[in-house]
Design a protein around this nucleic acid. Structure first.
Lengths: 194, 194
DNA sequence: GCTTGAACTGAACACCTGTTCATATAAACT
DNA sequence: AGTTTATATGAACAGGTGTTCAGTTCAAGC
């Protein structure tokens, strides 16, 4: 057997990326190329038509995710007023993470499995995102409408708090998305002294 | 060659546990028994004098960590007043996590690599710890000195925020431990409306 | 209808995996 | 000094790893 009817690279390509999302469930090292291939419905060798190697599969997944996060954040209408901007940040973060639980998980858990060069690239993207929040906190601090003990520490603390939503939120759970978003936004604002 | 001078189980046993902490750096699946053995200074086969298998090594590590966390929390002098209790919780959490960055990392990252039975046991311990915080929040809510949108959500959010300290804090960094502890305690209190 | 080439297979490569076990050593006890 | 026993070795096991590649198949272009 070889090429099957109706299977083209435009179909298999995305399937490979989706298959690689299995990294989220069991971890990069624990998921073999053969397992990904099986999920895609293909033999292991065929994966190498879509990625040069396993590491690139992980890296591309994380890079794409971070770029989408940054692009999504850039596309938001940002209020001038720092408290409103902070609320916007919190709501956007939670909302974005609702829709991509697997990618978020990978982006935060598999950093240690990136080769140094790839790690540096992803870290740089992450830093960009953090800087967006820190800028808001600094401007709020300067104008006196926000009050945090240390802008860098507060940036880490708030992002950690927000990202934690993926650890427990499950579709169809006790709280609807909008409520979760409201609650997180409220807590972030209070934590930052808004 | 075989048994070496001055090497006993009382020495090798702890070394095995310390060697298994390599799970923190590269992940459970990525660390082989031979790598752990090499770190201990022993052949792979000898590890099985100290653990029935690799999974138990991970499980015991996590179980011990969680039990120590619970024991440490139980040993604290807990104030009656909810705001003071919340501050105590935050400070204890941060302080405890300062000293065990690797174990904390493993406890939060390797849950998915536990077999179902072991996972359930660790989750139960984690739940105990969370309940301690939630109890504080509820009593504060009841007496009106604290105000959170949802005690369960707030529990997750605050613990995520506090645990995040291990992601960036490094010994000898910009901020001393005491300052970090102060800042986190302050933000937690504010976030909970204290 | 024939040729081309993208898409895929399946076997092979060298090496690594967790785990077991017969064997060897050195310390402790008699 | 001789025996026992805890501690460790190193080879072996069956199977899995990422990756390569000659060969096969099928849709599209002429």
């Amino acid at each position: 057997m070889a090429r099957k009817t109706g299977s083209h690279s435009e179909i298999t390509g995305p399937r490979v990326r989706r298959g690689a999302a299995a990294f989220a469930r069991h971890g990069y090292a624990a998921v073999s190329m053969r397992q990904i291939a099986a999920e895609v419905g293909v033999q292991a060798g065929a994966l190498y038509l879509y990625t040069p190697d396993k590491q690139s599969l992980l890296y591309e997944l994380m890079k794409t995710h971070m770029e989408e996060l940054l692009a999504s954040a850039a596309g938001v209408g940002w209020p001038e007023e720092p408290r409103a901007a902070l609320e916007t940040f919190a709501r956007h973060h939670v909302r974005f993470h609702f829709d991509r639980p697997e990618e978020v998980f990978i982006a935060y858990m598999e950093l240690r499995n990136l080769e140094p060069q790839n790690f540096a690239a992803i870290e740089a993207l992450r830093r960009c995102y953090e800087d967006r929040l820190e800028t808001i906190l600094r401007s709020g601090q300067a104008s006196g409408v926000l009050s945090v003990p240390d802008t860098r520490l507060a940036t880490f603390a708030l992002i950690a708090m927000l990202t934690g939503v993926t650890n427990w939120y499950r579709e169809g759970g006790r709280l609807p998305r909008a409520a979760v978003e409201d609650h997180y936004a409220g807590m972030v604002l209070k934590a930052a002294g808004g």
